Amino acid sequence: MDSAEPDTPREALQSVFHLRETYRDGERLLFYGEALVSREALIEEVWPAFREAGYEAHLATTRSGSEDVVVAEPVSNGPEGVPWKNLGLLVATVLSTLFVGSVTWYYVPLAQIQQNPLAILQAWPFTVAVLGVLSAHELGHYVLGRYHGVDVSLPYLIPFIFPFGTLGAIIRMRGQMPDRRTLFDIGVAGPLAGLAATIVVTVVGLSLDPLTVPPRVLEQSGEVIVFNNPPLLDLIATAIGQPTSYTDPAKTVHPVIIGGWVGMFFTVLNLLPVGQLDGGHMLRAMLGERQETVAAVVPLALFGLAGYLHYGRGLGLNESVGLWAFWGLFATFIAYNGPADPIDETPLDRRRQLVGVVTFALGALCFLLVPIQIIGV
């Protein structure tokens, strides 16, 4: 480490930190000494000055615990170089959604794909629809993150198998949120952008001609998975005068509509008001620390929902019971880890509070008690 004096706003530390030594470790700046106030008060005092100088500051301790260390790391101004990991996951997810879409939603036989792998390209509208709504959601976070100067990554798409070929997408946020306003703006931008794309995709899908189900599929017997319509999907269909099902068993809705269903389903999950989910960020910004009281109830509500469907409705694990039970466990884990805590706790203005209420209301229109069912044919 270089002990040369770093060019940073050291004067910001004077009233809250007894400084003994300063070092430069690569791009990081390390200030050794003793904190004179609590961790929260120290960061609240020094964070604005360091941020203006282009650094993200946080308080740590040495391994021996004998000294406090203010660590200042440069804030990223965007992707550096080619984002190979993001691109690799994008390509993998495009391929997985093309394959799953062609086999599951376009009824392309596996034998045909084995003979001609390019047959999966028939599912390109499905891939565009699904990845379009997921990418719009994450890009909403990304754009508002960059607007507020928060270090956020480009979206990481996650390839998977049945039924959609993907598990969704995520972004990484590094550093601390400066205030509740920033936390809210970044949190709400994803659901709103995703819902806008979802509505467009749903309208397009409903307007397309239905798909013809091959005779070999109609002749099969057993069980099929049914994806029930969220209220928002039915409202859109009614508004544009298009059906969401057909009396002729040889006709089915166009697979592009599945992109809209995926967008609505992931909106519901992301708006759960716990931890680092979008709903958790939004409610933390709207209610302050009272959000944790709400977050503690969410896992219980999800477990209760799973129990009701199983014992009250007689549904099995594969008919949404397992879905809500899994999210109950997941919500427990992320609620335990807690939400993002902004440095400035100034309450939100009324306009943002209203936007938050409207966003949660739109999310409620995407909720289904039983989104997935298994029906014998």
Rank of each mutant, 00 (worst) to 15 (best):
L13W: 03
S245E: 15
E319Y: 04
F330Q: 09
I161P: 03
R146F: 01
T332Y: 12
V274R: 12
Y311M: 10
L365A: 05
D25M: 08
L211Q: 08
V128Q: 03
E73M: 14
F99D: 13
T182S: 14
L42S: 11
E138F: 11
R146P: 03
D341H: 14
Q242H: 12
E219R: 02
A129M: 00
R290C: 11
R313Q: 15
D179Y: 02
Q112C: 00
V46M: 13
P230K: 00
A296I: 10
G194V: 00
D248T: 05
G222C: 05
E11G: 12
I240G: 12
A35E: 11
G356D: 01
I257H: 09
L118T: 14
V200Q: 09
A57I: 09
R28I: 00
D349W: 07
R351T: 14
G363Q: 00
A335H: 07
I334S: 04
P109N: 05
P230D: 02
W47H: 15
W124S: 04
Y156Q: 05
L134T: 02
P273R: 02
Y156T: 13
A189F: 00
G328Q: 04
I43M: 06
A119S: 14
D2H: 03
V46C: 03
G187Q: 06
P83N: 11
D344T: 07
A169H: 12
F333G: 03
V71W: 09
A237M: 04
R216I: 09
L232A: 07
L300Y: 14
W261L: 08
I158E: 10
P117M: 01
E223Q: 15
A340H: 12
V226N: 14
A285P: 06
R28H: 13
R20P: 07
A364L: 15
S38P: 13
A169N: 11
E80G: 08
Y23W: 08
L95Y: 10
V103N: 07
E44Y: 08
L354P: 12
H137M: 02
P9E: 09
G140R: 02
V100P: 03
V274A: 15
V128W: 05
E56K: 06
V203M: 11
G145S: 06
V204A: 10
L271D: 02
F227R: 08
G168A: 07
P48L: 03
G33V: 04
I258T: 02
G205A: 12
I161Y: 13
Y55G: 01
P9I: 11
I161K: 15
